[in-house]
Every structure is written in structure tokens, then in C-alpha cells.
Amino acid sequence: MAQDLFHLLSTNELKKEIGTLVAKDKRTLPENSKIFAAIAHMQKFDQLPDLVGYKELNALIAVGHIELNRGMTATKGVPVALYVRELLIGAMYPGTLSSIGNGIYLATTQPTKLILPDAFPRLSKIAENTLRMMNPA
């Protein structure tokens, strides 16, 4: 169980602990990312996630777990499959770009009709036409 490190440790103790872990981290990362990685390690937040099948995940969501999605794409010379593998079973990578802080960015699932009309009007029209063609009536 994670604890509030601000209350568990004095400011100096916390700073020392983080500094020790940051010094050991030899990855090429910004200082803030290394600090995040250090705290994640202290809290045991860098451990591997659970993996379940499609039906089991549906069952978890049905009992109140929050369904989330992560969009991933390849970058120059790095296939998306490598990023996926690292996210699920690799070392926790704190990232280098963060608009509202370090962490794993995820999005909620929404019905397509809520997103398309405002954000993608042309796609919305295509979707309407596609649905019409698929309707057997």
C-alpha cells in the first residue's frame, strides 16, 4: 500500500532518498522524469500490471473498474509493438514529454457519436453514410 511520503519522511530524508535513486538511474532522461521514476520505485508503482483476457477485462469493467485506452504509435525506427511490450512487461519508462505531469496517459472510452460531430465533421458524415449502407432495412 502506497503511503504519503511527505508525511512518512522529513523533507531532507525524502530529498536524500530521491537523490540516491536518481544518481543510480543511468538512463538518458530529464531530471524530472528521473525524480518521478525514483518516487514510483519508492512506492512500488513501477511493478508489472496484471494481464487478463478480453472477457475477463469486460467482467472487471462490469464490476466497477474504469475502462481506459492508450493510443500508441510507432516513432522513427521504433515499432509500436516494442512500446506495447515495454508498457506491459518492461521496465516502467517515465517518459520525457508531459503536458500535465509524468505518468501513463490514458483516455476514457466514449461512444463515437459524441466525438465525431464536433471534432471530425467530415468523418461524421462518412460514418452516417456507412451506417446507412450497413442497415439491412
Binding site: 518521478f36 512500488k44 508503482f45 500490471p49 494481464l51 483476457g53 473498474h65 500535465i100 501513463i104 490514458l106
Partner: peptide
């Protein structure tokens, strides 16, 4: 959503 604890996630 920004998840800072990877262990709190269950992946497919």
C-alpha cells in the same frame, strides 16, 4: 487520466 501506478492497471 494520468496513471502513476502501473500496478493499478489491468491490461488486455
Amino acid at each position: 487520466w494520468v496513471v502513476v501506478n502501473r500496478n493499478a492497471l489491468t491490461f488486455q
